[in-house]
Write a protein that binds this DNA or RNA. Structure first.
Lengths: 206, 206
DNA sequence: GTCTATACTTCGATAGAC
DNA sequence: GTCTATCGAAGTATAGAC
């Protein structure tokens, strides 16, 4: 019997609030801002309570990651089951909250190895989902998949909006409008104009 | 008279060593690993000495940034003065040390506002250099600059290798080879095969 | 479920001796 | 130029009262 330490239930409202606060801190500031004291203050509770629900900070970070990931994977799976998977990827990854969180978690993984494996696994899983949704799309549109390999397209649909988001957070703007115009021009040529009412999610870049 | 605190000279060998160690820590671990104690240990000196050369950690980070930036801007300026500026941008940004440092400094800027302005300014300056070098290249090659705007191309030449570098640090590999092949195929069509002996700098990704 | 109290660690920074 | 010594702040984490 190692430890009889108590841990709060997963359905607690307070626990949910701690997750919210942590995620917000990561998006608005950085993962460095996430400390048990800071999270507790923002949530209006005592610091010790953070450790009651999440024994270590790694536990807290991983809980936030899983909580977010579940919702996102679900939404993404639905989005990809249309005839415009490329448009869906592009919009999904252009969501400001999505890209900001992804960036912070990747930076976090650089110095918390316990988290690295989990993040990489989910990222690869998302990439696989993307690839599957794109499997026949390119051939159907008569693309030379020798050069424009599906794996390359998928990687670009993530890489481009993520880099742009990072630069925007820094206050840079040069070239962003032009890149978006270029990509969307190509998407239109491939999949036609974006149909579906783009319910601009909160956190959308523009 | 606010403070008569002493500060070490800029030509000191110890100071240079502290800069080296800090940069290495940022590349190999993360900016979070940079503490006065850690830097001092790695450099084999006393922690107080770090504060002798760099009164605050912000001073240290900014010194590293400027030191690196000077060398890189110089190298970049030379590289761009050829007839293969796109190839030069691509290789420059594919340098592992360059992209890792850029990423860390951007993450650092997220929670040290004193540093944000300086980083953004240099980043915009580099982008402007890129743009200038590319000004006539695209038209000369008969590219439709209405769609393939120079600003978009430049942004992509930075965004793509940087995102790939971040993913690689995480242990991801999917799609990277294919993206490189695609981009380099397009670069060949535009500027011909890469000439110049690519003196693969230390830190090059592959 | 929440808080008080507290142990322990690490960090940034400074004064002053050598 | 470098080190010893030290302060105060902030961090993680735990035990135990309520």
């Amino acid at each position: 019997m190692a430890s009889a330490r108590r841990i709060g239930t997963e359905t607690s409202r307070t626990r949910a609030r701690l997750l919210e606060v942590t995620e917000r801190l990561m998006v608005e500031e950085s993962f460095v801002a996430v400390t048990s004291r800071r999270v507790a203050n923002e949530a209006g509770v005592n610091p010790a309570l953070v450790h009651y629900y999440f024994p270590t900070l790694d536990d807290l970070f991983i809980a936030v990651f899983r909580h977010r990931t579940e919702r996102l994977l679900q939404r993404l799976a639905e989005d990809l089951q249309t005839d415009q998977p490329l448009w869906a990827m592009w919009e999904y990854n252009s969501d400001r909250t999505v890209s900001a969180l992804a960036t912070e978690f990747m930076a976090l993984a650089n110095h918390r190895k316990a988290i690295q494996a989990e993040i990489a696994a989910v990222a690869e899983r998302i990439r696989a989902m993307h690839l599957r949704a794109l499997a026949d799309t390119l051939e159907r549109h008569g693309i030379d998949t020798e050069i424009f390999a599906p794996a390359a397209i998928v990687t670009l649909m993530v890489a481009i909006p993520r880099s742009i988001a990072i630069e925007e957070a820094l206050g840079m703007t040069a070239g962003h409008r032009e890149v978006r115009a270029l990509v969307e021009h190509l998407l239109e040529r491939l999949e036609g104009p974006r149909r579906k009412a783009t319910k601009t999610a909160p956190g959308m870049i523009r």
